[in-house]
Design a protein around this nucleic acid. Structure first.
Lengths: 112, 112
DNA sequence: TTTATTGTTCGATGGTTATAGAATAATAGA
DNA sequence: TCTATTATTCTATAACCATCGAACAATAAA
């Protein structure tokens, strides 16, 4: 893979808010109320978004966990997709998304 | 470590030119002539910067491998240091620097 | 002490990005 | 079909970033 692609992946993770979104999906969970407006990421509980299929209704859940506008969050989702870090699909009113483990593995291999 | 610190590290790697510099130090080697102006990173040979102590005279060597001005490269070095990714020290006219493996490990653990 | 070499700092500039709000589109349910 | 819900796109703006050249600082060699 080209160096520019790696840079693109790192760029997608370089914004704190976007990284937080990514980690929520990665951990299949949502940040706690206390984490609002803070830089720390807290795992609330794993029951909020169960299953191995990724988060359902991820978009609105993540909106609830953050202090950003919908449009900004939508933009961040697209950046993460664009970098190949996550995949999203709409299932009716559900918004399912998951992390692309292959991309995560690529980063880890890159740093070997 | 705070999420903002991880974001900072990823930001340091998010610029293609800076990533190239980082990889030169990481691989303890310089890019080949052919790589000038291209987005690919090529390893030339390991003999140009031997030893485990990091690249000696890294700054000027890297300047020779890239199409950026000295001031820009200096800026990128500082960004990488600031993120904790590399450490540099001047030894007279030598400019020795090495990758902080602990930071690299932190990233890998973060993505576990 | 000069001079040459090497890297840093400063100031300017053009480009990119994060963000919000409004308008729009897509979908589900009544 | 109409309405409510949900996510996307558009437009604007302020902040940030990459880059350069020039001036400066530090060091080594003459």
């Amino acid at each position: 893979m080209k160096l520019s692609n790696y840079a693109k992946i790192f760029k997608a993770l370089s914004n704190e808010q976007r990284l937080k979104i990514f980690m929520m999906i990665y951990k299949q969970c949502c940040a706690s109320e206390e984490s609002r407006g803070h830089s720390e990421f807290y795992i609330k509980d794993k029951s909020c978004c169960p299953g191995k299929e990724g988060i359902k209704k991820a978009f609105s859940k993540i909106c609830d966990c953050m202090e950003l506008s919908k449009s900004t969050i939508s933009h961040h989702f697209k950046e993460l997709q664009n970098a190949g870090l996550i995949s999203c699909e709409r299932e009716g009113q559900m918004f399912r998304c998951r992390v692309n483990q292959e991309t995560v593995s690529l980063i880890k291999e890159f740093l070997e």
